[in-house]
């Protein structure tokens, strides 16, 4: 009986979490625009989606911004970690406190403050301002992922490499970088997802006519929901599912091997 109740509880929460996504998936194959009546199977909303310039544009913007933001914030963040670890512990603490501000602050405050800063300094809002803003809120995630790995580095290894005749650059590539790699990868991926998922900061810092997936959905929902968005969300969900399942399996394999 108890086991049954526990199972029921898990099932109800799963239903709560997945039913809305399921509803969108089913409606994306509905022939009519109705949101409650099934009128027949059709893939017309998918065809409409793949021929909709605005949607394709938004998808392109989302991913180019995310890749650029993740790459730039990873470079800046890793360099920062290497530098910060050589500072006195007091300066380290101060810098890490500043690093945490964008993480703890509300998105809306980050968004409006960046927007005001751009405009006050005469930078008109565009694709570039979105990228700069994304780099700003991505860097802290990279630093949080890489910093613990830096702390685990043994300084002796690097010095031993130098004593054995390695140049600093060679020692860095062969000794330090491999140890940092797991942190760098997870920092990059975290930055990438944060950028893809962001709506609020993009909403305030984007130039006219620049849309990411999130801002496009927001503006479309205001005028009236069309089933093309259901098709889009189905595609996104399936991609997310596949990527996460693969990465989970790979991680479990790695864990099993170690």
């Amino acid at each position: 009986m108890k086991k049954f109740l526990k199972g029921l509880y898990i099932a109800i929460i799963l239903l709560f979490l997945y039913l809305p996504i399921g509803v969108l998936m089913v409606l994306s194959f509905n022939e009519s625009k109705s949101m409650s009546i099934w009128t027949g199977f059709s893939t017309r909303w998918y065809e409409e989606m793949f021929s909709n310039e605005m949607i394709l544009d938004a998808v392109w913007n989302t991913f180019t911004i995310a890749i650029c933001a993740a790459a730039a914030s990873t470079v800046i963040g890793v360099l920062a970690c290497l530098g910060i670890s050589r500072m006195r512990s007091r300066s380290q603490k101060v810098i890490m406190a500043f690093n945490n501000i964008p993480l703890l602050n509300a998105d809306i405050v980050t968004g409006i403050s960046l927007m005001m800063t751009f405009l006050v300094f005469g930078i008109s809002l565009s694709w570039g301002t979105v990228l700069l803003s994304h780099i700003t809120f991505c860097i802290p995630y990279v630093i949080l992922s890489v910093m613990p790995k830096i702390k685990q580095l043994s300084p002796n290894m690097y010095e031993a490499a130098l004593d054995l005749g390695a140049t600093p650059a060679y020692a860095f590539r062969k000794v330090i970088l491999p140890d940092l790699m797991p942190g760098i990868t997870s920092g990059f991926l975290l930055a990438f997802t944060m950028s893809v998922d962001d709506f609020v900061v993009t909403h305030f810092t984007r130039g006219a006519g620049i849309n990411t997936i999130s801002t496009l959905i927001y503006s479309q929902v205001k005028v009236g929901i069309r089933p093309t968005l259901f098709a889009l969300s189905t595609v996104i969900f399936v991609i997310v599912l596949v990527v996460l399942v693969i990465s989970n399996v790979v991680q479990n394999r790695k864990g099993a091997r170690n």
Partner: peptide, 16 residues
């Protein structure tokens, strides 16, 4: 897992 899906789409689902 749902956390990784765009939260505007998740909110839109409830609107629907």
């Amino acid at each position: 897992l749902p956390m990784w899906m765009n939260f505007l789409l998740r909110t839109m689902a409830w609107q629907v």
